[in-house]
Each structure stands twice: as structure tokens, then as C-alpha cells.
Design a protein around this nucleic acid. Structure first.
Lengths: 191, 191
DNA sequence: CTCATCTGTCTAGCGGTGCTAGCATCTGGA
DNA sequence: TCCAGATGCTAGCACCGCTAGACAGATGAG
């Protein structure tokens, strides 16, 4: 009885170890370096062990992404505490961009890599929903009669676009601050 | 003498054949299906022939992307002809989104896949520069004292964000039109 | 305590990938 | 006609994601 509990605990620990290791490896050497062989080496087990925890490599990436969504939601929540609307919006946007910048590989897994997590559906995991709600809470004040969800989606898209285009070298690193400021002005302008 | 010319002509044709085939294959079956073996099969040559034309697979993707930039620039140019500012902006945005929608794989190669083409630099290829200029010409009218280039970059980021988040299922397909309308309103609002 | 079973992990291997060394063949000029 | 060089091929390298099947250790029954 207690033996089985211990086993489950150990399994859960190893599950976490796999996710943590995949994330660390991706962050330090890029997702290309995250191969099943390398990952198995790193956790000091053989390859097939990975497949007793996850359906395949994609599932591992998805698990990493999910961890990312949880962290992002926490950070966005923390950034919504400010009072004045424009400052709150700016805090949110900066928190989002900081997260993306500090965890580029994680951010890629969440928003760029093909990972079938259900977005905006009934079975959407809590962290995803919560992250969006945090964004919404900062943006909604500027809705001014328009649909707050739509406005949030557009704001989010703009942030995401800035991030991925900058990261790929498609936007010059120099104008970063100017672009963010302009976007915030644009979003918070009184109509 | 003329023999050498014929050879060069044939080489150029085969170069084009490779790019065309890679693009077609990517568009019909996704970039995952574009392997060097498959590509070699399709053009009815052996694998090493590919490497006598391109440094590697990445270079082939880059060549496809470059073709995409040329086409996109043409389409954006065509869309700038409208008169009234708001309509012109809308035409541009719709042309951009239509291009992305009609050529998803091509769009990915241009803007998502890691492909080292020099963006926003001295040696930036003409089509890239021209495409950006076309966007700028539609956006600049709404700059109103702000830096038109920065505004264009933000507008472009927003469009790109909408496209990639929609494509990945991160945004519901339903709100598409509403999001575009809201973005256009936001960009063209008098300050 | 012994033995059969059963769970868990490993080794080895399949069919695929991008890429390349080295051989054969074909071409064009002397 | 014969040779040199260009051209494209076969075969193979090291790697990939994934899995079948062998093996060892823990577990529970007698």
C-alpha cells in the first residue's frame, strides 16, 4: 500500500525531472539540442523511460509549455495590482515582454511551436485561462464600448508580434522601447 | 562559349526548379515533408545535386522565403493605390493577411522559420525593403507627429501576431474580422 | 525460505533525417 | 581520337524519434 504510494511519488518526481531538464536544456542550448537521447542521458535513464512518462517528444514540449503558462499567469497576476489604468497596462505589457525575454525557449514552446493544447475552449487548462484574464483586466478599462475580449486579443497579438519579430531579427533591436511606448499610447488613447 | 552559356542557363533553371518544388511541397504537405531525399526525388535528381546549388536545406528555405518577399512586395504595392487613407490602410492590411492565408508555408518560411536573411540592414534585399516601404506608405498618414517607421513596425507586428496566433489555434477563428476591424480603427483613430 | 510472476529498465534496432566522400560517366577541346 | 575536367551518382556517416524484446530485481503465494 505505502509501497505503491512511494512508487507513485518517485514517478512524479521523475516526471518533473524530465520536464525541468528539457526546459533547462532548451533554454541553454535551444530546442534543437533537446533530443530524446540527450534528454535520457541528462536524466541518467535510458530513452524508453521517457516514453513511459510521455507519449512522445511533443508531449514533453507540451508539458514544458504548460509549466510556462502557469508561471506567466502568476507574473501577469502580480503585475495587475497597480492602480492607475495606464500604468497598470504598462506594467502588464512589460511583465509579458520580460517573461518572453527571460525565457525565450519556454516562450517558443508556449506560443510558436506546434503543441496541441486547447486554447480558448471549454477544456482550456486553468493557467491559460487565468493568464488571458490577467491581460483582460488591464486592457478592459480602455475598451470604451468595444468588446474587451477582442481588444485584449489584439493587444496580445501586437505584443506577441513585437516579441517574435524582434527575436528573429526582423525588427531592429534599437527601436524596442519606442515601439512599446507607441503601442501603449495607441491602446490607451482616449477615443 | 555558347555552350557555357547554355550550361549556366540550365543550371539556373534547375535552381528555380528546386525552389519551386520545395515551395510546392511545403505548401501541399508542410515543411516537415520537405526532406532532401523527397525533394531530390521530386526534381528527379540525386540528393547531392541539391548541395551543388545550395549550401544546405536552410539555404533552400531561405531561397523560398526570398521569392515570397518578392511576391508580397508586389501585392502590397498593388494595394497601396487606393485613395482615401482609411480605405488604403484597410486594403493594405487585407492584402497582407490574404497573402499569409493563401501561402501559409511560404509565410512561415519568411517570418517564423529561422532563416538568416538580413532584415533592416544595409544589405537587406530589395524586396524586403520594398515590402516594408509599401506598408509604410499606408501607415504613415496616421503618424501624426510620431515616427512613421516605428508606427509601421507596430502595425506590422500586430498583423503578424494576429496571423500566427490564429494559425496556431491560440486565437479563435470566429473573431477574425472583429479583431482586424478593431486594429484598423485603433491605428486610424484621430488623436 | 523458495519460487513464480510481474513490474520496471535496458540494449539493440528500425526507418528516417541532413550531409558528404569518392567513384563513374559523360562532354568538349586539342 | 584521346585525354582532362566537369557533372551526377551510389553508398555511407552520424544523428533523429520511437519501439520490440530481453533481462533483472522486487513482490506476493505457498
Amino acid at each position: 500500500m505505502s509501497i505503491q504510494q512511494r512508487r507513485e511519488r518517485e514517478r512524479a518526481q521523475r516526471h518533473d525531472l524530465i520536464v525541468k531538464t528539457a526546459r533547462k536544456l532548451a533554454e541553454s542550448e535551444g530546442w534543437d539540442a533537446v533530443t530524446t537521447r540527450r534528454l535520457a542521458d541528462e536524466i541518467e535513464y535510458s530513452q524508453p523511460v521517457l516514453y513511459s512518462h510521455f507519449a512522445g517528444k511533443d508531449a514533453i514540449v507540451a508539458a514544458v509549455a504548460l509549466e510556462g503558462f502557469t508561471e506567466l499567469a502568476v507574473r501577469l497576476r502580480a503585475a495587475t495590482r497597480t492602480g492607475e489604468p495606464r500604468a497598470a497596462l504598462e506594467g502588464l505589457a512589460r511583465a509579458y515582454m520580460a517573461f518572453a525575454e527571460e525565457n525565450p525557449a519556454l516562450y517558443d514552446a508556449m506560443f510558436t511551436m506546434a503543441v496541441d493544447l486547447p486554447f480558448g475552449q471549454d477544456d482550456t487548462p486553468e493557467p491559460l485561462r487565468d493568464g488571458f484574464q490577467a491581460l483582460l483586466s488591464g486592457v478592459a478599462q480602455f475598451a470604451d464600448g468595444r468588446d474587451p475580449a477582442i481588444l485584449t486579443e489584439v493587444a496580445w497579438s501586437a505584443l506577441h508580434g513585437l516579441i517574435v519579430l524582434s527575436r528573429g531579427g526582423r525588427l531592429p533591436a534599437s527601436g524596442r522601447e519606442a515601439r512599446l511606448t507607441l503601442l501603449l499610447d495607441q491602446l490607451s488613447a482616449t477615443r
